[in-house]
Amino acid sequence: MSTSNAYTTSGGASTPVIAQQQAMPAPLPPTKRRKVKRKTWQTIVWFVVLIALTALVLYPLVWLFFATFKPNAEFGQNTGLIPENPTGENYLKVLEGIAGVPMWKFYWNSLVLATAAVVGTVISSALAAYAFARIQFKGLAILFAAMIGTLLLPFHVVIIPQYLLFNNLGMIDTFWPLILPKFLATEAFFVFLLVQFMRQMPRDMDEAARIDGAGHVRIFWAIIVPLIKPALITCAIFSFIWAWNDFLGPLLYLTSPENYPLPIALRLYNDQTSSSDYGATVTASFVALIPILVFFVVFQRFLVDGVATQGLKG
């Protein structure tokens, strides 16, 4: 694929706006750097609009929350928000665990998998992205195209060959087939995401550092990594959540119920061939949602500060 030609040769031609910026007069005096004051009514409108949107977006989750108090037979018969015969049984059932495996074990497995995924993905993707975005080396174009190509591949196609591989390595029913690929940057999404962010960073800084004699390792570590912190945090958040929610991978590679992560455990309340406990299913998935919700609420703060902007102020 030659898509990367457009990629690697794009540049100056498409920057009329920046030209406009270049025409701008003197650098800003420090006093003008303070935040522009917003009008109060604007803030109120902003607030109201967001509240309305939030209500809309959260309604299904609120519905789900109320559904955790519905007895099993109410599913399919009562589509309203409020349970007709509220019960706490679903929670008791979920707390019992599944088939002798306590609930915390599923949480723990998910946590281990997701944490390993974050570490592996962030490190390996950042390294690969730096090479694609900031180093001019032979074969760059073709490898970049190949990386994009892997994005296009439906996952189901490689399932069987990958299974055979990990089976031959004796890694079935261990976490390795799920963790190892993360350390090899196999999720092109993250590599590409970081490439896009790195390309957005002005090149002049690392050029300057090169003149000062810095090598790629130092430029990567001392300049690029601090600059793309928001993107790295984004990667970390996504890889955590996606690993937490991954279903197909654990399904294929894990066999013992003690090794199951939450998404598989959630399905164990359902059996199409006999009966399904929808009350327990909904409750379990709601309970499973809480840790990542907390995780996100905590980590989204890091997205607040424009880290990159601060870096430029240096």
Binding site: L61, T281, L293
Partner: peptide, 14 residues
């Protein structure tokens, strides 16, 4: 967080 919450829930039966 509110807008992201729907993306947090796994593609489950729920």
């Amino acid at each position: 967080s509110a807008f992201y919450a729907p993306s947090l829930i796994a593609a489950s039966v729920s």
